[in-house]
Amino acid sequence: MSALLTAGPVRQTRENDQKLAALAARCHYYMALMREAEDRIERKLYRQGKVVGGVYVGRGQEAIPVGSALHALPDDVLFPSHRDMAVLFIRGVPLGRVFAQYMGRVDGLTRGRDGNMHMGDIHLRVVSIISALAATVPVAAGAALALKYQGKDGVAFCYFGDGATSRGDWHEGVNLATVQKLPVVFICNNNQYAYSTPLELQMACANVADRGPAYNMPAEIVDGNDPLAVYDATGRGVAHARAGLGPYLVECKTFRMTGHSAHDAAHYVPPELFEQWEKRDPIQLLEARMLENGWAGREALDATHARIRQEVDEAVAWAEQSPYPDPATLLDDVYEQP
């Protein structure tokens, strides 16, 4: 099977309406949490000089990590990329530890050894990216191989952007996974830019999903600003992978509503594109849908935002109490300590 599928809208019947309402509420919480946490990092802590190093956010793309990672079961292993912060929250990483990471404090997930989204927690089965794009693709294939080897029905969730699919590692990892029929769901955020490079200078095909057939890998395209559509598509991918049919690619069409990083004003992006996509803000679209379908009232949504602001306030305060790492620990952990 090498079909290039296009997902239809999520079916709304009376029976699944309640389920959808609950799912929408979970999506809304995690998406709003990611937005608030990243806003705090980029627009406050970074400008105050409390965040050292670069900051890359996923503003406008929150539906993708959220809609997909909500499928993850305990045995599954996740490989979020640099615009997928919500994966960490869904997996149970405490908010304060994420802020501590950005501020280089000892309570960050890397204990001050690395910064920004370069973090993971092996106990929660979240693997840290390295900076080199697509390097996690073969690693995710290997993790999936281990799950199969160990007789578990877990799946690897591997995230990347459109630009990362130009790397040899991407192609080697995908090919290995397909040949070995490994349980990986590849989740691409196609935000149409890689730093300043637009899609047409990145690849000669129109969609990342077009790469699927070359590997005999099913690939589908979804609206990456609709968490329920992402959820649905990822669900199909996870079912496919768990059934032992091999990897599956979900391409989520979206837009990067920021510069590449906090120091990039993105003058190379035509302003109309920002205006156009601003109207498709995934959180606002979801809220409108929740209100329209009677899944939530305005007060409930406002209460979620208020609760999130408080959680973020508390987590930032906690992280600011965390000390910088002791320089005496510089040499520790290059190898296992005796």
């Binding site: 050292v52 910088y324 002791d326 510089l330």
Partner: peptide, 16 residues
């Protein structure tokens, strides 16, 4: 520099 990766946090990088 000592034989470690380059650490991120200012206190560690300064020591490095």
């Amino acid at each position: 520099a000592p034989d470690t990766p380059v650490p991120f946090s200012p206190t560690l990088e300064e020591a490095f």
